[in-house]
């Protein structure tokens, strides 16, 4: 466990050093957030509430999306894949630490920096421009926090799993990119999923993607409450467990393959 926190700390410090990148990311987040908010204003036009989400809620959703891109690593994550191709994986697998935890510790450091430097600052910044929705009461705040952590865990265990494809093919980058594109749509990052027709929703919930982002924002916006909310949180937990399990099985198969190939 000490090793875990040590790795988290190192990763945290490393990500803190990307000064210019953080500032650049923030500026980009603000810009896109404003465009997306403007699109919602134009879509709502005269309507006040659509599918339980008010215009104020939709604008908050646009802000949250930008705030969480870095934290959830929405665009790409090839780090594990790269170690397979460079061969660094050999020494990582020999470390006295579970391989999944080894990456999770580092991703936690990365997520923490992104949450603090990008997530919080983006939300504060938007609060100056827009009238945002904020969670009400201790219960909702706790639920949002729990869901945020679970959302990161879904995202990480999914990213870990798909990166393992690099054990089998030298073309993993293309496959990963394809999956990331799917995740933008089906996680509700491009539009809140409940704005879509019923059939799109049904397809989405067959995949892990909504549990990374859509669940978090629905709890945040107060669309999901009471037993429904508890169910959504449990659903996130279920996906985390399944993804971790799948990850362990695939990892074992992959390692066996690497050993056979002498890679």
């Amino acid at each position: 466990m000490r090793l875990f926190w040590e790795l988290t700390k190192i990763s945290f410090q490393r990500h803190l050093t990307y000064r210019a990148a953080t500032v650049a990311g923030l500026v980009t987040n603000f810009f896109f957030g404003i465009l997306r908010a403007a699109i919602f204003v134009a879509l709502y036009d005269l309507q006040t509430e659509v599918e339980g989400i008010t215009l104020q809620g939709a604008i908050t959703y646009a802000a949250l999306g930008q705030a969480l891109i870095g934290y959830l690593c929405m665009f790409s994550w090839f780090e594990l894949m790269n170690t397979v191709y460079t061969g660094d994986i050999a020494s990582d697998l020999l470390k006295p630490m579970n391989y999944f935890s080894f990456w999770m510790a580092q991703d936690l450091g990365r997520a923490a920096v992104n949450f603090l430097l990008r997530g919080i600052i983006v939300m504060i910044g938007y609060a100056f421009i827009f009238d945002l929705v904020w969670p009400r009461g201790a219960a909702q705040i706790i639920a949002v926090a729990v869901s945020l952590v679970l959302g990161w865990l879904v995202s990480f265990s999914w990213r870990f799993l798909i990166n393992l494809t690099s054990f089998w093919t030298p073309n993993a980058r293309g496959i990963l990119r394809f999956f990331f594109v799917l995740s933008w749509f089906f996680s509700g990052f491009l539009m809140p999923l409940r704005f879509f027709p019923e059939w799109v929703l049904r397809i989405s919930y067959l995949m892990p993607f909504p549990h990374m982002f859509n669940t978090v924002i629905e709890i945040y916006l107060g669309v999901l409450v009471g037993p429904e909310m508890i169910l959504a949180l449990l659903n996130q937990v279920l996906w985390i467990l399944s993804l971790i399990l799948a990850g362990q099985i695939v990892l074992r198969l992959g390692v066996r393959r690497l050993v056979i190939l002498g890679g």
Partner: peptide, 10 residues
Amino acid sequence: RGTMGAVRNL
């Protein structure tokens, strides 16, 4: 170097 150093570099 270090966490504080990284913050100062910002």
